[in-house]
Structures are given as structure tokens and as C-alpha cells.
Write a protein that binds this DNA or RNA. Structure first.
Ligand SMILES: NC(=O)c1ccc[n+]([C@@H]2O[C@H](COP(=O)([O-])OP(=O)(O)OC[C@H]3O[C@@H](n4cnc5c(N)ncnc54)[C@H](O)[C@@H]3O)[C@@H](O)[C@H]2O)c1
Ligand SMILES: NC(=O)c1ccc[n+]([C@@H]2O[C@H](COP(=O)([O-])OP(=O)(O)OC[C@H]3O[C@@H](n4cnc5c(N)ncnc54)[C@H](O)[C@@H]3O)[C@@H](O)[C@H]2O)c1
Lengths: 219, 219
DNA sequence: AGAAGATTGTGAACGAATTCTCAAATCATA
DNA sequence: TATGATTTGAGAATTCGTTCACAATCTTCT
């Protein structure tokens, strides 16, 4: 009767993915509080900022440990440190951008990644007239050099900004050479093995999910 | 003892928000199939593309009607039409961009919105040297003209691309003048009344939720 | 036309996520 | 040091979302 393998690989007290998804938001709020000079915050206050119930915040944090003090709340600095530790935000993450067109260039020039530990250390394209150019201090290299670049510069994360029709093949290559996390900007849902993490950014999907409410909302 | 009002305002057979969030993805896949000349698809095939179980797709669609044929599947064209109808994608949505800096300009020049019915018809900024300039065929106007512009051009959706510290005040103004949906690019979680829909796009949050797995994944 | 095969739509079962609740811990004050 | 006011952490209860399972229906093949 024992059907599927009794010792599962990931589960047990695994942290739900939704919870992990909220931690970075907590980090953002805590950073803001810290730079406003706030030293202590309770779950009520934190929740208010993010439109989340206090209970949810406490439950989320309880997956990782006991960071608060009864009757008082959380030390902003302490909680921030703990969460950054948990999320691996103390390390420096090296990132490669694939596709240095209009969007790729915009990403290279966005200053928002570096303060959070994400360093764009390489850029690849397959357009000969781009290769060799320097963009925002990063030299554009041929996409064939992917493997060498990833190894040489210890890269674990890729940002993909190529046209839709090339996205899957580019991502296949990235997976092949050991990239473990991908941020995809092309409007498609690429397939990756479950050992590789992927997130897509698509403003059109966001807009379309809102128009539903504009159309059917209050009539 | 009866505390909160007994007749709730929205509920009953309301469609869960997660379901609405998946519909645009279905639309995207159906468009792809259509342009590949595929006329019929079953829930299995659709699910494969999106890494979703066939049962989920059928259950999602069942909130809105009965669009399939047993033993056969769904007519791609028919289902696409129905979903676009449901999401309000047949209408043309007029959009205003607030903040015409580096990101704002990039958004104005992104050709991906128009094919899906989102037309950027106005752009606002508060930098005098930008006002009056024309960017991608749209004249930049003073942010004080917001109300007039929204009314005159029948705008319901706003895209916000201003620095973090101005985001909340800009959004308050947008809400005040009747904007019903907001796409926010600033790395913050703005407060809006629940009658207004808001989505935020923040690549750093996406990256941070992945590093958790890179750090704690397989060791 | 009839039988075999495919696939939907949906109630019921299950599983996951959120919220409730309250004992235990801490703080503030006198 | 005792009292009252807060607030956490975490099990229990509840709500929400997904998957199962199968009757109903359509297609295809002979
Ligand atoms: N999510 C967003 O907010 C957003 C915004 C803009 C664009 N996009 C998407 O990003 C992608 C790129 O858009 P863009 O405007 O920069 O296009 P673009 O044409 O300006 O740039 C694409 C670049 O990719 C390169 N490229 C093509 N195939 C490649 C390959 N196999 N390997 C490496 N490089 C390759 C091209 O040489 C080009 O430089 C598109 O899919 C677009 O839809 C998304
Ligand atoms: N989510 C993303 O992918 C992403 C990418 C890049 C930038 N960003 C964010 O977008 C925002 C803008 O970034 P940017 O690089 O374009 O900055 P920027 O400084 O180039 O542009 C900001 C523009 O907003 C205008 N502005 C300021 N206050 C305003 C107000 N009250 N009303 C109207 N306009 C106002 C400024 O005049 C300027 O033109 C920032 O919050 C940044 O963090 C997000």
C-alpha cells in the first residue's frame, strides 16, 4: 500500500513559497523604517504598511525563528539582519544580462540592483555590431561565450531580455551552463527544470488582470 | 452580538483573484496557438504550456461559462474571444504615464502595450525642462494638469514612474481624480482605497525571493 | 448505427494558507 | 516588587484554492 516513496525530498517543514515571496517586502519596509530612525516596530505597524494582517506577519516570521519580544515588538535592525541572512542578501550575487537591446541597456543602467547586492558583471548579445561595445561599464560579449563567462565570473543569476521567439532557447542554454535563477522580461512562460527558479516580469499581464475589475467591477 | 454588517457587499459567487490573475496568461497562450494555426486545444495542452494542471484550467474557466466540447477540447478562437471579452480587452484603454524620466521614456517607447489595447495618450512630469517636449509622439504636460487631462482624454489607467519619495503623493492625486487602476514601478507599496486596483513591478523583489532558494536550496 | 475513446464541467475531497485565540513573556509604573 | 497593559508565538479553527473522480457529452471508427 505504501505507494510513493515514503521519504519525500523537499517537504517536511518546508516554508511555503508565498511566505518566501513576502519576506523581501518585509525587508523593504524595515529598511525604510531604519532610515527613518525607527528602532522598534510591532506586527501591527509592519502590517499596516503592506496591507497585511499582523497575524500573518507573525506567522510568516515564526517559520524561521523567534525574533520579537512580547509586549514590545521587533527590533527593526535585528529583524532586518535576520531576514537578509535568511534570504541570502548579505552575499554579493553576480548577474549576467542576455540581450542588450533597448530593454537590456535600460536594465544595465538601472541603479536599483546594486544597493541590494545584485551586480551585473556581464552582458551578452548575438548582434555582431553590439559585441565589443561597452555599455554602462560592462563589455558586451558574444552569446557563445556564455559558458566561459558564467564560470569565470562566478555567475548564478541571469536576466533575460531577448525577443520572445528566442527566449526559450536562450533559457535552455542558461540552464545548461548551471544558472540557477532567471529573471525573464519577455512576454512568455518559459519551461525550466524545477531545480531552476524563474520569475517573469510582464506589465501587460498586470494591466490585463486589472481591466477585469474595471469592466466587471461596479455596474 | 451581531458585529459587522450581515449582508456582505462583494462576495457570493465572486471569482477568486488568483483565477483572474491567470486569465491573461491563458489569453497569451491562446494568441500564440492561434498565430501558429492551431484551431483546437484541450486543457491538457494548455496546461502544459503554463505548468498548470488541466483540472485547474477547466475549473478556472467554469467560473465564467462552458466554453469547451467534450471529447474535443476548446476552439482556440472562441475561447480567446470569450476571455478577452471577460477581461475587457476588446475596449481600448487610455493610459497616462506619470514621471517621464529614464524609465518613463522607456515605457513610452515600449511597443508591447498597444497591440493589447493599452494606449498611452498622455504623459506628465513636474520638471519644467521636460514639459512641452514631445516624447514618442506624446507631449509632456505639467502634472498640475492631471485632472484636466484625465477628464479630457477619458483615461482610467495610470502608470507611475516617479522616484520613491514622490510615489504616494502622486498616487493620492491619481485616486482623487478618478483613476481606477495603477501600475506602479517604484519600489514601494503605496496605499490606495480598495476601490482602486494597483499592481507593482519590482524586479528586485523577484530576485530576492529567488536568492532564498539559492542560499538554502541544496546543501 | 453502435461501440470505443476522448475530454469537459463540476461536486466532493483534499490540501494549503490565513486568521483566531490565548498562554506566556516583557515592559511601564508606582 | 506587584499590577496592568502590550504583544509575541504557535496550536486550533477556519477559509480559500487545488485536485480528484466521474457522469455527461461529443468524436471517431468500423
Ligand atoms: N517586461 C517588460 O517590462 C519589457 C519591456 C520592454 C521589452 N520587453 C521585452 O524584452 C525583450 C527585448 O525587448 P527590446 O525592446 O530590448 O528588444 P530589442 O530588439 O531592442 O533587443 C533585443 C536584443 O536581443 C538580442 N538577441 C536576440 N537573440 C539573441 C540571442 N539568441 N542571444 C543573445 N541576444 C540575442 C538582439 O541582438 C537585441 O540586441 C522583448 O521580448 C520585449 O517584449 C519587456
Ligand atoms: N520597476 C522597475 O523595473 C524600475 C526600473 C527603473 C526605475 N524604477 C523606478 O522608477 C522610478 C523612476 O526611475 P527613473 O530612473 O526613471 O528616475 P528619473 O529620475 O530618471 O525620473 C523620474 C521622473 O519623475 C519626475 N517626477 C518627480 N516627481 C514628480 C511628480 N511629483 N510628478 C510628476 N513627475 C515627477 C521627475 O521630474 C523625473 O522626470 C524610480 O522610483 C525607480 O526606482 C523601476
Amino acid at each position: 500500500m505504501a505507494d510513493i516513496s515514503p521519504s519525500r525530498w523537499d517537504d517536511q517543514s518546508a516554508v511555503p513559497e508565498v511566505v518566501v515571496g513576502r519576506l523581501p517586502q518585509y525587508v523593504r519596509v524595515l529598511k525604510e523604517l531604519l532610515s527613518d530612525g525607527v528602532e522598534v516596530a510591532n506586527s501591527q505597524q509592519l502590517g499596516q504598511q503592506l496591507q497585511v494582517t499582523p497575524a500573518q506577519i507573525r506567522k510568516d516570521l515564526s517559520y524561521f525563528g523567534r525574533f520579537g519580544k512580547q509586549g514590545r515588538g521587533y527590533s527593526v535592525r535585528r529583524l532586518l539582519d535576520e531576514l537578509q541572512q535568511i534570504l541570502g542578501l548579505n552575499e554579493q550575487w553576480n548577474v549576467v544580462v542576455v540581450g542588450v537591446g533597448r530593454l537590456g541597456k535600460a536594465i544595465l543602467s538601472y541603479p536599483g540592483f546594486t544597493p541590494d547586492g545584485f551586480h551585473i558583471v556581464a552582458a551578452l548579445d548575438n548582434n555582431p555590431s553590439l559585441i565589443g561595445q561597452e555599455v554602462e561599464g560592462v563589455k558586451v560579449r558574444a552569446v557563445e561565450e556564455l559558458d566561459a563567462v558564467v564560470k569565470a565570473q562566478n555567475i548564478t543569476i541571469a536576466v533575460v531580455a531577448v525577443p520572445v521567439r528566442f527566449t526559450q532557447q536562450v533559457i535552455d542554454k542558461l540552464v545548461e551552463c548551471g544558472i540557477r535563477a532567471i529573471l525573464n522580461y519577455a512576454p512568455t512562460s518559459p519551461q525550466v527544470p524545477e531545480s531552476v527558479k524563474i520569475r517573469s516580469i510582464d506589465p501587460v499581464l498586470s494591466l490585463q488582470s486589472m481591466t477585469y475589475y474595471l469592466t466587471n467591477g461596479s455596474e
